[in-house]
Simulated scan of single mutants.
Amino acid sequence: MSFNLEKEILKYSPCCEQEKADKELILNLLKKEENLLNRDNKICHFTASSWIVNKEKTKILMIHHNIYNSWSWTGGHADGEEDLLDVSVREAQEETGLKNINILFKDIFSIEILTVNGHIKNGKYISAHLHLNLTFLLEADENDLLFIKPDENSGVKWFKLEDSINISNEDNMKIIYKKLNNKLNSIY
Score class of each variant (00 low, 15 high):
185 N>L: 07
68 Y>Q: 13
42 K>H: 02
169 N>G: 09
105 F>N: 14
118 G>A: 11
172 N>P: 02
41 N>G: 04
73 W>P: 13
181 N>R: 03
80 G>N: 09
162 E>H: 10
165 I>E: 05
99 K>Y: 05
107 D>P: 02
25 L>K: 14
33 E>K: 15
171 D>R: 14
185 N>F: 12
67 I>Y: 04
92 A>M: 01
52 I>Y: 05
118 G>Y: 03
59 K>W: 03
12 Y>Q: 03
70 S>L: 00
3 F>V: 00
150 P>V: 00
116 V>H: 11
12 Y>I: 03
97 G>V: 02
129 H>S: 06
173 M>E: 11
35 N>W: 02
126 I>W: 02
142 E>G: 12
143 N>A: 15
79 D>V: 08
178 K>P: 03
135 T>C: 10
111 I>L: 15
35 N>H: 13
141 D>R: 12
108 I>G: 07
64 H>R: 02
128 A>D: 00
99 K>T: 14
104 L>C: 07
92 A>V: 02
146 L>C: 06
67 I>G: 05
76 G>I: 00
75 G>A: 07
84 L>H: 05
73 W>G: 15
50 S>W: 03
82 E>H: 04
81 E>W: 09
165 I>F: 01
52 I>Q: 06
152 E>W: 13
85 L>D: 03
152 E>A: 13
98 L>R: 03
127 S>K: 11
51 W>S: 09
139 E>P: 00
182 N>M: 07
31 K>C: 10
185 N>I: 10
115 T>S: 14
153 N>G: 03
43 I>G: 11
148 I>R: 05
139 E>Q: 08
49 S>K: 13
66 N>L: 08
128 A>K: 14
138 L>G: 12
15 C>D: 13
23 K>N: 00
28 N>C: 10
121 K>E: 12
156 V>D: 05
184 L>N: 04
133 N>G: 08
53 V>Q: 08
151 D>K: 15
182 N>G: 11
62 M>W: 00
27 L>V: 08
170 E>H: 08
34 E>C: 15
79 D>F: 06
65 H>F: 08
134 L>M: 06
105 F>G: 12
9 I>L: 05
108 I>H: 06
27 L>G: 10
131 H>N: 12
163 D>E: 13
22 D>R: 07
27 L>C: 05
90 R>Y: 11
174 K>Y: 02
134 L>N: 01
137 L>E: 12
40 D>P: 10
183 K>R: 10
54 N>I: 02
